[in-house]
Design a protein around this nucleic acid. Structure first.
Lengths: 204, 204
DNA sequence: TTTTTTACCGACCACTTGGTCGGAAAAAAA
DNA sequence: TTTTTTTCCGACCAAGTGGTCGGTAAAAAA
């Protein structure tokens, strides 16, 4: 982790460019040559560092995609106070980032989940692991929200988490085709609506 | 439409098998040879009926995918009474069908929308057209629900439609990886929760 | 300085891709 | 029956595909 600095640097460059192109064109529609060309590197360099295209992608999942999802959707939520406002802010922020990103091809996680669904179980599992961490985190903040008096005690936290993730994945898919601002606005409005039906009732 | 019966039959066979494989493996990960092999047909037959792979897929969208979405998600809703119960039944039914389908690779429409996003605008547009029809239909039934006293008048019908479609696309993506029964149950429960927050208030 | 290890090059391989084309059965029309 | 049209065959092509391998600079170790 000290001596092989050059190694790490090159691998990282490959991973970054690889993710860019995979995200842009899809995994099966991106060749290793494409990636190498845009890096001015050779086949030899690639297969010196990675065993195969699949191995390469797995390393991208573990190094880059995990971090992306973490920093955008998990960390902003962990251990905060009012679940509803925290999640609301987090989603709003994530959608706004996507909206202003010229190169948006949808939610990276759900894109790859659906591309690899049943086609490559190894990769699918790595992706589902990320999804599960996200889910667990949502559930735990909702549970905490119950003890803190924000969330109604009758609410099914796991159900809410599933519903949140589903809807988020869905809008992100729809957003790619443009009209993002409008979609985001409508989505956030309904999200608040939904949340209002889950809030703890005022004690009269 | 009478003389070229054989023509239609062969084209239809190709389209059906084509959709099967495209849905299963993805468009870019399925070759024409794959389809031809499973039909015991030759290249010549294919290019006699279709101009290109893209042209072929467009015909599949217009003939098969449109109908699928229509019969599963649009027709069961058109012009019915209580929007909430109608949509609820429709979604429940659609999810159950998917759940019991051995070969489920996610919601066909959203799968292809994300596969072609920004990679093939021609096909993307055809897919988005279907999505739009679905949306329009949801909006119109919600609006009708307002005049019929089911839906609260302050509700933003377009927002609700967007939210519904998003969440549906999302669960369908999640369902592929198994645990469908549980996902469906949780999803439907939250959907009802959400709907309850949109219902017209009882006149005291 | 010499030796060894690390990092990279690029020709090459077997195979697959979408697509073409001359021809030949099969069916329809004459 | 003969002719024409429709439908399909399959060899072929150029352009990729993921992956291998013998070799070589440059850096590190000796």
């Amino acid at each position: 982790m000290d001596k092989n600095l050059k190694r790490m640097a090159t691998m990282h460059r490959m991973q970054v460019t690889g993710l860019e192109l995979f995200y842009k064109n899809g995994y099966y529609n991106t060749s290793i040559d494409d990636i190498l060309k845009s890096l001015s590197l050779s086949k030899g360099a690639f297969y010196y560092h990675f065993q195969s295209k699949e191995d390469f992608f797995v390393s991208i999942v573990q190094n880059l995609i995990v971090r992306k999802v973490y920093s955008m959707l998990i960390e902003p939520i962990e251990g905060k106070e009012n679940p509803f406002s925290v999640i609301e802010n987090c989603f709003e922020n994530a959608l706004e980032t996507a909206e202003h990103n010229e190169m948006d091809y949808g939610f990276i996680l759900s894109n790859f989940i659906s591309e690899f669904n049943r086609r490559n179980t190894v990769i699918s599992n790595y992706l589902m692991d990320i999804y599960k961490v996200w889910e667990v985190n949502l559930v735990s903040i909702l549970q905490k929200g119950k003890s803190d008096g924000y969330v109604d005690r009758h609410v099914d936290s796991e159900g809410v988490a599933t519903y949140l993730i589903s809807s988020y994945m869905g809008v992100r898919t729809l957003m790619v085709q443009g009209n993002c601002r409008n979609l985001r606005y409508k989505y956030m409005q309904q999200l608040r609506h939904y949340f209002s039906s889950l809030a703890a009732k005022e004690i009269a």
